[in-house]
Simulated scan of single mutants.
Amino acid sequence: MDESSDADLLALVADSSTTALETLYHRHAPWLTIRLSRRCADPQIVDEVLQDTFMAIWRNAKGFTGKGEPAAWMWGIAVRRLVDAFRRRPPSSVLVQESDLSVVESAEERVLLGIEHGALGGALETLSPDLRAVVQATILDGLTTREAGRLLGLRQGTVKTRMMRARQALREELT
């Protein structure tokens, strides 16, 4: 299985192959952990999100259409699971208290919570689904234009154009 492509492994996972899932895990868990850790300072949440990600891959492998890179598809799942983990946290655990240095929060956590509950969250809701998807992939998920294009099944130039339109619409909505 080590020589199989990620797309082939996902097809096998869709047919309930635990060996294929294990191979995907060993291939992708290290870099997913690093990227998630850059967005969340709590290693326990990162571990839970990683586990949730591979459970979602197990359950939804048939959802991979073959368009784009499997790694970008998996990253999209991981980021959505991370956002869900932030939403489930009680508000009191989000606040950083200077007297309690055991509570650590990353800048991304603050931004994601501000997006959900702030003026930007409302402005994002006014965007068309196509523009919102590009904003989520590039800004909130931290993907490059190329990765976002693969994830969304778009050309890189289309991602850039939609991002330009989204920025313009958000500027108008927020001013």
Rank of each mutant, 00 (worst) to 15 (best):
Q168V: 04
L151R: 15
M74V: 15
A169S: 15
D100F: 05
G121H: 09
P70V: 08
L127A: 10
D100C: 07
A133L: 02
L82C: 06
D42A: 13
Q97E: 13
V159Y: 06
L151E: 05
G114I: 00
R155Q: 15
V159M: 07
L120F: 07
L152T: 02
R59I: 04
L82K: 03
S106P: 00
L50P: 01
A123R: 04
D130I: 02
K62Y: 03
N60H: 13
L32R: 10
R39V: 00
C40T: 02
C40Q: 07
G153K: 08
L143Q: 14
W73D: 10
G149C: 09
D47N: 12
R150K: 15
Q136K: 13
L131T: 06
P43A: 05
G118H: 01
A85D: 01
D141V: 00
A85K: 10
I139L: 15
L101R: 15
E125Y: 05
V49R: 10
S93M: 07
S128E: 13
G149M: 09
G157C: 04
R35H: 11
Q136T: 12
L36A: 09
A41N: 07
T53I: 06
M163W: 06
I57S: 00
A61M: 06
R146F: 05
G122T: 03
V159K: 11
Q156Y: 05
R87F: 01
Q168W: 05
M74C: 14
I34S: 14
S92N: 09
T138W: 03
G153E: 03
S93G: 03
A119P: 04
G149L: 07
R27N: 03
D100G: 01
R165D: 06
V135A: 12
G122H: 12
E48L: 09
A123G: 03
D100E: 14
T161L: 12
D47Y: 02
T23A: 15
G122K: 14
S102H: 12
D47Q: 15
D52M: 08
Q44D: 14
A107G: 11
T65D: 10
D141Q: 11
A123I: 08
H28S: 09
R89F: 00
H28W: 10
T144F: 01
A137D: 01
A107T: 15
R146K: 13
M55T: 13
C40H: 09
E108D: 13
S102L: 11
S99R: 13
Q44I: 09
L131I: 03
V104F: 01
A61R: 06
R81T: 02
A78E: 09
V103Y: 04
Y25H: 14
G149W: 06
P90H: 13
I139Y: 11
P90S: 14
A119I: 05
L101I: 11
V111S: 04
K67G: 05
V134W: 05
M164W: 12
V96W: 03
A41I: 06
T65W: 04
Q44Y: 06
F64Q: 10
E105M: 13
P91T: 03
W31C: 06
A61N: 05
G68N: 08
A78F: 03
G149N: 08
V134N: 09
W73S: 10
P43E: 07
V49M: 03
G114D: 14
T144Q: 10
L131R: 15
G63T: 04
R155M: 08
L140P: 00
L151M: 13
A72S: 15
I77H: 08
L124E: 09
R39G: 09
S128N: 08
